[in-house]
Structure formats: C-alpha cells, structure tokens
C-alpha cells in the first residue's frame, strides 16, 4: 500500500496509479456536493445546462460543513455517507469526474462505473470534521447557495488525507481489509465485490 500525492485536476494516468488501500493525499481545488446538490447537477445536465464547475478531472467531496467561526476558513468538514449519492455518481463519472470522497459502501453500479469511466472512490475518516478542516485553506460557495450547508463550495486543500476503497482496476479495500480481520466463526462474512466485465 503506497502513499500517493495528487494535484488537481486529476488525469486518467493518475487514476490508474491509485490502488485500493493506498493513502491518497490531495492538493488543489476540489468541490463539495451532497444529495441535494447532486440532484440539481444531474437535472442541469439532463436539461443541457453546464455544471457549476468543469467536471473534467474534478474531485468531488461529499461534505456539508458547519458554519465557520470568525477567523476560520470553514467549520468542521468531515465526509458524509456516500451511498446516498450512488444514484448520481455514474453520471458524474461519465462527465469526467475522476475522484469522489466520502465514507461507507458503494453500490455495484458505482464500482462498475469507476472502472468503465476511469475513476476512484476515496474515503476520509468519518467524524473527524475538526481535524480534516485543518487541511482546507480556502472555501467559497460557487453554486446553489439556497441549499445552505448543502451548497456547492470550491475548496482549496493541501494534502487532504484519504484512503482508496474502490479503484479503477476493481480493487475493494473494505472487502480486503475486513477479510483480514473477520473471525472464522463470525455470524456474517464480508461481502465480496461483484466481478465486472
């Protein structure tokens, strides 16, 4: 398991270097979006309207931060649970988004779309919102301001710490990591990823 530094925008070559289990440190501009923002972006695309940011090589972080205190760039800003974006993620990947950051399991459709369009799914430590905010140097709302915490923000991050769970090659770190520690007599076993074509 490697430690990989990437700078945005992300190229297809960089995506191919990232393997499930790798520590990925991200520097540059990334965009925040949760359920409500994804719903609007997918509606925008369906209506032929452009996205609020250039999706080619983009990184999306599933986060709804708390309001900043005076002097702070952003409030607490840890990842939200990713499966709620599963419905929208293949569309975002198809339009060029390369990395998405959240926490938790993804659907088989998302894992297949990562391989088809060339993307990777990364996680940051859930509940570590105060710690992760320290890696965010700038934050600006760029779209859907009426959504409050769910508005799209452009963040400038430095060495934002993530771990790759699902890579472009079909690797699945939740399965690999849990398989290493599950006891032989456990009542439920880790679910293997569905092999894709």
């Amino acid at each position: 398991m490697a430690r990989i530094h990437v700078t945005t925008p992300i190229t297809p070559e960089q995506v191919r270097q990232i393997r499930a289990g790798d520590e990925v440190l991200i520097t540059g501009e990334i965009y925040t979006a949760r359920d409500a923002a994804h719903k609007r972006m997918v509606e925008d695309l369906a209506a032929g309207r452009p996205l609020p940011f250039d999706p080619e090589g983009a990184v999306i972080y599933y986060v709804g931060p708390t309001p900043p205190k005076p002097g702070q760039v952003i409030g607490s800003a840890g990842p939200t649970t990713s499966y709620r974006m599963d419905k929208y993620t293949p569309t975002m990947l198809r339009h060029g988004v390369r990395l998405v950051i959240g926490k938790g399991y993804r659907s088989d459709e998302v894992k297949a779309a990562l391989q088809e369009y060339g993307g990777a799914y990364l996680v940051a430590t859930g509940g570590a919102g105060a710690l992760l905010a320290r890696r965010i140097e700038e934050a600006e709302v760029i779209a859907y301001e009426d959504l409050g915490a769910e508005a799209i923000r452009r963040l400038r991050v430095r060495e934002f710490p993530t771990i790759c769970i699902n890579d472009v090659h079909g690797g699945d770190q939740y399965f690999a990591g849990q398989s290493q520690w599950v006891k032989p007599d456990a009542m439920v076993k880790p679910k293997p990823p569905v092999a894709s074509e």
Partner: peptide, 24 residues
C-alpha cells in the same frame, strides 16, 4: 491510525470549541 485520528479530532474540538463532527 483511525482511532488516533478520532482522539486527535475530539481534542481539537474541545480545545477550539468547535463541533467534532460536521453533522451536529
């Protein structure tokens, strides 16, 4: 490593009087 991050996080939250998680 994850547990260390969790401990570091709640220490920052208490010291700086900020929410430990963005989902308050």
């Amino acid at each position: 490593t994850v547990l260390m991050q969790i401990v570091e996080n709640y220490t920052i939250a208490e010291t700086e009087q900020v929410p430990m998680c963005q989902d308050t």
